[in-house]
Simulated scan of single mutants.
Amino acid sequence: MSIVVGYVPTPAGEAAVRAAVAEARLRGEDLLVLNSAREGSLVETTVASDEDLGRVLAPAQEAGVRARVVRGAHRDDFTDEILDLAAEHDASLIVIGLRRRSTVGKFIMGSVAQRILLQADHPVLAVKPRR
């Protein structure tokens, strides 16, 4: 079994990876870090650089957690990609980061976190960044 975490280079994404590393260490499980780009997007802010990934994965290495980055591409929504990865690896836990959004923002754009929480067949840990 493994722990799956969705990572984007934001404070919420970094909080999610920190929590996922702690859970992987506690449970003695591997960590899969999913970073995905939207297909066809010319400018994508969710794509992590090698530097971003190295910085957030360093604590995993220090803690003795085996971590692997999975790079993907999604068409409509990141939700299906993270749920598919969790199913494929029989994840014991999915970890996601949460960020504040306005009511209008949630209405217009939807919420990936909400869809993951509602659709996941695996336990989900949702974390917020420190203030």
Rank of each mutant, 00 (worst) to 15 (best):
V65D: 04
T46W: 00
V65Y: 00
V33F: 00
K106G: 15
R115E: 13
A24G: 05
R27M: 09
I3Y: 04
G72T: 06
D84W: 04
L31G: 01
E44L: 07
D30Q: 13
E23N: 08
G72N: 11
D77Y: 14
E23P: 11
L98A: 14
V56M: 01
D50N: 14
H74F: 15
A12K: 05
V69D: 03
D77M: 13
A48F: 10
E39P: 01
D52K: 11
S49Y: 06
A67C: 08
S111D: 08
I3M: 03
A67M: 07
A91H: 03
A20E: 02
V4M: 00
K128W: 04
L125T: 04
V69C: 09
R130T: 13
K106F: 01
E81W: 00
R25S: 15
A12D: 05
L118Y: 09
D76Q: 12
Q119K: 15
I82R: 01
S41G: 08
Q119N: 13
H89G: 00
A120K: 08
R18V: 00
P129R: 07
V4W: 04
V43Q: 05
Q114K: 14
T45P: 10
A16T: 11
K106D: 09
P123L: 06
R27W: 11
L83C: 01
S111G: 10
L31I: 06
P11V: 12
A24I: 03
Q114T: 13
D52Y: 11
R66C: 05
E29A: 14
V21I: 15
G64F: 11
S92P: 02
S49C: 00
K128L: 12
A63D: 11
V17L: 10
E44H: 12
K106V: 13
D121T: 10
A16V: 11
V47M: 05
V56G: 02
I82W: 04
L57I: 11
R75H: 12
A87V: 08
N35Q: 10
K106L: 14
Q119A: 15
S92F: 07
D84Q: 14
A60Y: 06
D84M: 05
G110V: 13
P9K: 10
A16N: 05
D50K: 14
A19Y: 01
R38A: 12
A24L: 04
V95C: 08
V17P: 02
R130L: 15
R99Y: 12
G40P: 05
D50Y: 13
L34T: 03
E51A: 15
S41E: 15
A22C: 08
A16Q: 08
R71I: 07
T103W: 13
A60S: 08
L34Q: 01
F107S: 09
E88N: 06
A48W: 06
I82K: 07
R68K: 15
R100W: 12
S2P: 07
Q114D: 15
I96T: 09
R55H: 09
R55E: 12
Q119I: 01
E62A: 15
D76C: 07
R18M: 03
R99G: 02
E14P: 02
V127H: 01
A87H: 10
T10H: 05
A12E: 13
